[in-house]
Amino acid sequence: MTDMSVNKRAAILSFILLIGGLLLWEAAIPGQKAVGELTEYERLTGGGAQKAGVPPPSQVLEKAWEQLSDPFYDAGPNDKGIGIQIGYSIYRVLAGYFLAALIAIPLGFLIGMSPVAYKALNPFIQVLRPISPLAWMPLALFIIQDSETSAIFVIFICSIWPMLINTAFGVAGVRKDWVNVARTHELGALRTAFMVILPAAAPTIVTGMRISIGIAWLVIVAAEMLVGGTGIGYYVWNEWNNLDLTSVIFSILMIGVVGMALDAMFGVLQRFVVYSE
């Protein structure tokens, strides 16, 4: 046991925790009594009817198997496969997110390079940043008149701030010695930006991007509950209306898994741009 690697021991512990947790959950759900075991009184008070309870993990796993074995079926507006729903959500998140990156990174660069721009824009950023993205929703719906685009706008507005602030911070904090290296080698403004400032600020910028994608994924679920139609957020809400708690729990887990995957992608990007001095 003692010569086992830390990773191996951690994996074993995780597995034990998972199994233990599932067993506890399974045991904690009271089973439905069969009709034959009911007393006269219970039968009269409707005790024999199906009770909506939290489903045990075995049912959730069954549901997961069923859904994941055919994730892309489409049987009408209220019955689509989980893959299609997640696909819609990811599409909205990425659309809003990349629009935000397209604006936040160049603007952050400008703010980081110019103390005047920083001071001029800072009050706006400070006021707009703490606004809950969902607070924009009514205004977005009114102006845009399209729920789909409004959801993308909400993602855009929530993911722009961490990227903007981190880019500005990273660019402003580039070591002066490195800028001097660029200057003494007569690199032009564009080459200095791409050869020195961008790589120097990249770890901070990617950290901002990673925070943004996390927030965007949190927000899309809430936004889709509001706008409805498609998406994983709508799916959760729809299954809640159906009182299908098995599907609710399954989709909650799927939200977690997709969020983890999005974060891991940026983790890889981060490892790629990081450098040590």
């Binding site: 070591r175 010695d177 001097n180 290296v181 007569e186 020195v196 120097a200 741009v273 040590s276």
Partner: peptide, 19 residues
Amino acid sequence: SGPSLDRGVVFQNYSLLPW
């Protein structure tokens, strides 16, 4: 006036780009 490739500089520290 201004830096130029005609004047090369070796700084005490940090003159290499770490990436």
